[in-house]
Nucleic acid binder design. Structure first.
Lengths: 189, 189
DNA sequence: AAACAATACGGAGGTAGCCTCCGGTTGGCA
DNA sequence: TGCCAACCGGAGGCTACCTCCGTATTGTTT
């Protein structure tokens, strides 16, 4: 379920509040880490604490919702780039987007992984989704001759992650590091 | 400083409370993780919360004290083993002690490392202390011909850590895994 | 042994976060 | 328009955090 209960759609006010909460949770977790105050999230969303707890019965439920939403956005970005950019630029931009995301999140994802079963629906589905998005981006780059044919989607994701770690302490070098990675990704001439 | 202020010794009651707090903190952190309740630690130590805060002004200060104490104990164990066991047994027992410790602590040390500067006095000193202890254990084992001469103290510590990770999910295999490690440590015949 | 600093103790108290519960409100359908 | 299921909000009971200061204990001095 995203903002529906599987049955009929949510009432308009419920949906509005759900989305405000999600947005505030996203920025609060980013700002204060995984144990940001839930009451403050509710306050900033202009909503009572009871409403927060109705939509997200536990802190973990809220964290999961944020995580899922971000994965979906990352996947969506891949499709968007595939339509608006030339293949090589799209590839580079997507790697950058992932690296930026995982740098911003640092320990947050770890916290989640520590608590959740790695084989849970949530993880499996998000992983699949990202994987499919990666395939799209990669297929275009291959067709255009800007990516080696033996580069897998997993490689792609690992490279992005590596980039985020490598540029952790020196964000200003991100572009240069990315160019190294892309050099490695291109077919040998 | 351990239980002295560098100047004159602590008053008897202060010292007693300090040690009780440290002991309770140790078991509470073990049981509930790095964010165990400080008030409960004080309660279990039979001490007012004010007393806890006087001795350890912040949660981090308490965590550091626990960490330091445990490192000291680990180092002390090396010297004790060096005096009471044959070299090869001492080596095995110490590797085991380290592995057990780091398994018990799991995320706790990570939490600490996330907050503290890795070049802080605390870490440097504890590291040196353990390193020296490792040298003692290793030197004896080498002299007795049960450890290769190209094995460094860092290798030793890494092996112990590897053992703790490897036996995380199957503690009953710890002994067998340890024997593999020791096989690798012995000089080739 | 008694008195006196210096030192240490302990917990009340104010703040904040957690989560539950339920009287009141609102959206959407007939 | 009227109705009711769905939804809202926040009071309230609990726990934890940390500070502050009146009281008690220690050990030293006479």
């Amino acid at each position: 379920m995203s903002t529906t209960t599987g049955q009929r759609p949510m009432r308009a006010d419920a949906r509005r509040n759900y989305e405000r909460l999600l947005a505030e949770a996203k920025s609060s977790f980013l700002e204060h880490g995984a144990d940001a105050s839930l009451e403050e999230i509710a306050r900033r969303a202009g909503v009572g604490i009871g409403t927060l707890y109705r939509h997200f019965p536990t802190r973990l439920a809220l964290q999961e919702a944020v995580y899922r939403d971000e994965m979906e956005q990352l996947a969506a970005k891949a499709y968007e780039l595939a339509e608006t950019c030339p293949p090589d630029e799209g590839l580079a931009a997507w790697i950058l987007a992932i690296a930026e995301y995982s740098r911003a999140k640092r320990g947050l994802t770890q916290t989640l992984k520590a608590v959740i079963d790695l084989h849970s629906d949530l993880f499996v589905r998000c992983h699949d989704e990202i994987q499919t998005a990666a395939e799209t981006i990669l297929a275009r780059a291959r067709a255009a001759g800007t990516a080696r044919s033996d580069l897998t989607t997993s490689d792609l994701l690992r490279l992005a992650h590596a980039l985020s770690v490598a540029s952790e302490r020196a964000p200003e070098d991100t572009g240069r590091l990315l160019s190294f990675i892309l050099d490695g990704v291109r077919p040998r001439s």
